[in-house]
Design a protein around this nucleic acid. Structure first.
Length: 567
RNA sequence: CCGCGUUUAGCGCAGUCUGGUAGCGCAUCUGCUUUGGGAGCAGAGGGUCGGGGGUUCGAAUCCCUCAACGCGGACCA
């Protein structure tokens, strides 16, 4: 491609509304343009990158035995009413009526459609197991789209759905998909982790998220420094902390006027936060309130808390009035001793001795508190968010916390949709049997942004080989004034194309600085410079996008050299 | 959805407080010059000042209203 026929649309200035680096660079490099909040045009350069992702995804889906289909992005309401999700989905489901006043929506996902397709087309166990996939635009009317295509309202997604007669068969395909996903992100050159995920409201038994590691990621993930264990922090199990056997000290009461938060009490009494018990009052599942105890330096994990039977789901904190009623004091002075509501303690609280806690009296705390002696040992559960340095749940190594961008999610759906929508086939006994399902998503457009978050410098994007819109930038200097140079450049350009290299030939009448800056911003992995000066020695200059220094090579060696360098 | 903020040329912004009919930088186009890291000179084009209503002799500027966009929160494969 020649730049005279493939405009680059780069911009020097950083757009005011782009916060994260990938968004800024995608605008500046001319990959995307915003149409409205959460809606983007993909320019030719950006689309080439998107297609690269699609290509890798398609190849690996085919290898995994999945078959490509294409389903409409507009979907009839009846199917969503079938599954029950028409009423459950909130305003992020974009609904509208057609000219006949029939209800439709823009598909945020395609479980209903694929289940309908399969229940109509697949009649026999002999056609099972079966996996369909598609690459299609989704629309979710996000409350607050942000970060460019990272969290857009319309985005491109690969979604796959598998259908099975048995759980074993589902497990097998799930494993295959897990492997396919790992291959995809490896081939794309991304540093990623597969992590155990919360199955959440969707249900099902097993779920993994695939995260690209990046500081700007919206999710926190925990992983062991010595084993394969990795989980979303919401899911990561916190182990009990061994008992420290200090000799018991007597219980005492201390005045702490105006000291409410753990930090305040800690500073006021000169006690480390890990020796203070934090008492949180939350709403109970059967009305009333429940007290949750945590070590002062630990944070509550709302996902774990809301899974406890006695605690209301979703988790909701008690109002100040409810706290006053339960403890006769304000939230900053609540403690478990003498509290007459259900109490659940985090595992790490149970091993504390001589701790400090609120005395259920405004401006007053207890010190030297011990379970067994001063109050009964409460029911204990895993309640807290894991922190850096915690023991890994598998017992191997300690946990580290990193931020990640969720680019893929696989989970075992079970019979949630097939049951609700009557997706059955005849089994070997000639009886109707409900299909078991799995589903597997990849945020294709999000992968592009995630790749940039992980691969950039102050000059611009540094594409991994598999994603680069072009492999080579051919930049002749002052070609307009040198016929000899133009001849050589054209010859090289044709030779590169012959060799199957994707080359962007900068034939603009631009100054060298402009060409270099553009090619670096756009992130093309390899650059070949030729000039009259170099021509005299029969050499060209090569520089990789990540290289500090350029090297000179014979012009005749350029194509073979590039072929050895390509990823 | 709540709170705060923004909206003036393709992009980034000034002008608004104190009303007098719009400006800067970049980008674009033309010409000259220059040519190994986003050049220089000269010239040109481009704006219903987010929409509507009001006050005023006169509104980008003051008032009312609607909208879009952004940030924080809550929410969310």
């Amino acid at each position: 491609m020649r730049t005279s026929q493939f405009p680059l649309n780069t911009v020097k200035e950083t757009p005011a509304d782009a916060e994260i680096i990938s968004h800024q660079l995608m605008i500046r490099a001319g990959l995307i343009r915003k149409l409205a909040a959460g809606l983007y045009n993909w320019l030719p350069l950006g689309l080439r990158v998107l297609r690269k992702v699609e290509q890798v995804v398609r190849e690996e889906m085919e290898r995994a035995g999945a078959l490509e289909v294409l389903m409409p992005s507009v979907q009839p309401a009846e199917l969503w009413q079938d599954s029950g999700r028409w009423d459950i989905f909130g305003p992020e489901l974009c609904r509208f009526k057609d000219r006949h006043q029939r209800d439709f929506c823009l598909g945020p996902t395609h479980e209903e459609i694929i289940t309908d397709l399969v229940r109509n087309e697949i009649k026999s166990y002999k056609q099972i197991p079966l996996t369909y996939y598609q690459i299609q635009s989704k629309f979710r009317d996000e409350i607050r789209p942000r970060f460019g295509v990272m969290r857009a309202r319309e985005f491109l997604m690969k979604d796959a759905y598998s259908f099975h007669m048995t759980q074993d068969s589902l497990n097998e395909t799930y494993e295959t998909m897990y492997g396919a996903y790992s291959r995809i992100f490896e081939r794309l050159g991304l540093e990623f982790r597969a992590v155990l995920a919360d199955t959440g409201a969707i249900g099902g038994s097993l779920s993994h998220e695939f995260h690209v590691l990046a500081d700007s990621g919206e999710d926190a993930i925990a992983f062991s420094d010595q084993s394969d264990y990795a989980a979303n922090v919401e899911m990561a199990e916190a182990k009990a902390i061994p008992v420290t056997q200090d000799p018991e000290v007597p219980l005492s009461t201390v005045e702490t006027p105006g000291q409410h938060s753990i930090e305040e009490v800690s500073a006021f009494l000169s006690i480390p936060p890990e020796k203070i018990v934090k008492t949180l009052i939350v709403k109970g599942s059967a009305g009333g309130v429940v007290a949750l105890l945590l070590r002062g330096d630990h944070a509550l994990n709302p996902v774990k808390a809301s899974k406890i039977e006695a605690v209301a789901s979703p988790l909701e904190f008690a109002s100040e009035a409810e706290v006053l009623e339960a403890a006769q004091c304000a939230p900053g002075s609540v403690g478990p001793r003498g509290l007459e509501i259900p109490i659940i303690a985090d595992l790490s609280v149970g091993s504390l001795t001589n701790f400090t806690c609120g005395a259920n009296h405004n401006g007053r705390h207890f010190q030297g508190v011990n379970f067994g002696r001063d109050l009964p040992l409460p029911e204990m559960k895993d309640l807290r968010l894991v922190t850096e340095g915690d023991v890994s749940p598998d017992g191997q190594g300690s946990l580290r916390i990193a931020r990640g961008i969720e680019v893929g999610h696989i989970f075992q759906l079970g019979t949630k949709y097939s049951e609700a929508m009557g997706a059955t086939v005849l089994n070997e006994e000639g009886k109707n049997q409900v299909l078991t399902m799995g589903c597997y998503g990849i945020g294709v457009s999000r992968v592009v942004a995630a790749a940039i978050e992980q691969n950039h410098d102050d000059k611009g994007i540094i594409w991994p080989a598999a994603l680069a819109p072009f492999e080579v930038a051919l930049t002749p200097i002052n070609m307009a004034t040198s016929e000899a140079l133009e001849k050589t450049a054209t010859r090289l350009y044709e030779a590169m194309k012959q060799a199957g290299l994707e080359v962007l030939f900068d034939d603009r009448k631009a100054r060298p600085g402009v060409m270099f800056a553009d090619m670096e911003l756009v992130g093309i992995p390899h650059r070949i410079v030729i000039s009259d000066r170099l021509l005299e020695t029969g050499r060209a200059e090569y520089k990789g996008r990540k290289d500090q220094e350029a090297i000179e090579i014979a012009i005749d060696e350029v194509v073979p050299f590039l072929l050895t360098r390509r990823g």
